[in-house]
């Protein structure tokens, strides 16, 4: 009696053990490659900075302290670290604008692809992914060629006599914005297209039939139905925008730094690893809070369908 139950239990624990063993390589990789470094960062953020970069294993809150505050070197008074705050605000606002701009540009693009005949849709999707074939750095330098003073855009506008002098776009927030919209647009188009491809266009007809004009159909039928794609695309664009490094470095120069550049500065020239680590974790926290806020909002507005 008991032996049968025992055998069953033994067999079950055997299966469980085997499953753990099977997933062990994946778990090791996840731990070593993803979670481990985070712990290293967390530990570094609470240590004292070394003289030539690196950290000394002495507990200190200086890193965290310097994220938002600065101490006057003469009279030791505390004040907000304006430079850091400006860079954080620029990162957040530029990322938000990039997300909005890619959404505005990507929505009609995805709609266009989704309404093509089935045979030609794959070709359009393929065309959207072509920029991924080129390295990000090269694409960013290419963008520089477009927007610099003697670049294609300014030459064209001057040739058309729209402007008399070249627009100084390079090394401004605009340059960073152009670059990020260009680079991240496919990340918005693809999830949007995936949602729209599933859209039942008979529902659009039903909307028209029930006295909804074009705008009302867009607002009341299409957007609620493709909301999962809007949410996914926004997340995919917002997160890398917030941490963007190459684009602000190449197009923004030293004047328009973003969080990614600021963090790099601490690990490089700044030689302040604890501050860099604390900033990285701050960035992660900002991303997570923004996401939580966004996803919850989207879920509520979509009546549980987002």
């Amino acid at each position: 009696m008991g032996s049968a139950a025992d055998a069953a239990r033994r067999a079950e624990s055997e299966t469980t053990r085997r499953r753990w063993l099977l997933s062990a390589p994946a778990l090791v990789i996840i731990f070593v490659a993803a979670i481990g470094p985070l712990f290293v960062m967390l530990a570094y953020s609470f240590m004292t900075k070394g003289d030539y970069g690196d950290v000394k294993p002495i507990f200190s809150l200086d890193g965290w302290f310097s994220v938002l505050l600065q101490r006057d070197i003469f009279d030791d008074t505390l004040s907000l670290a304006d430079a850091n705050l400006i860079i954080m605000w620029r990162s957040l606002s530029l990322s938000a604008i990039t997300t909005a701009a890619t959404l505005i540009l990507g929505f009609p693009t995805a709609y266009f692809i989704a309404t093509r005949p089935r045979e030609t849709r794959e070709m359009w999707v393929f065309l959207v992914t072509i920029p991924f074939w080129t390295n990000l750095l090269i694409r960013t330098f290419a963008m520089q060629q477009v927007i610099r003073n003697e670049g294609i855009l300014n030459s064209l506008l001057m040739w058309l006599r729209v402007i008399n002098e070249p627009l100084p776009i390079m090394y401004t927030d605009w340059a960073v914005l152009f670059g990020m919209v260009y680079v991240y647009l496919p990340l918005m188009v693809l999830p949007l297209y995936a949602s729209m491809e599933k859209l039942d266009f008979r529902l659009v007809e039903a909307g028209y039939d029930l006295y909804a004009g074009r705008l009302a159909v867009l607002r009341r039928v299409i957007i609620p139905l493709v909301k999962p794609g809007i949410v996914a695309g926004s997340i995919l664009v917002f997160i890398p925008s917030l941490g963007a490094y190459v684009i602000p470095r190449v197009l923004g120069g030293g004047k328009t730094m973003m969080l990614g550049n600021l963090i790099e500065l601490q690990f490089g020239a700044g030689r302040n690893w604890p501050l860099g680590a604390a900033m990285s974790i701050t960035l992660m926290a900002v991303v997570m809070i923004a996401l939580l806020f966004y996803v919850r909002n989207a879920a509520r507005a979509g009546g549980g369908h987002g």
């Binding site: 039903a206 039939d209 029930l210 039928v221 369908h305």
Partner: peptide
């Protein structure tokens, strides 16, 4: 107004 073959009710 139309009653569609597939009903086309709004799922959201």
């Amino acid at each position: 107004n139309t009653v569609f073959q597939s009903y086309a009710l709004f799922p959201h």
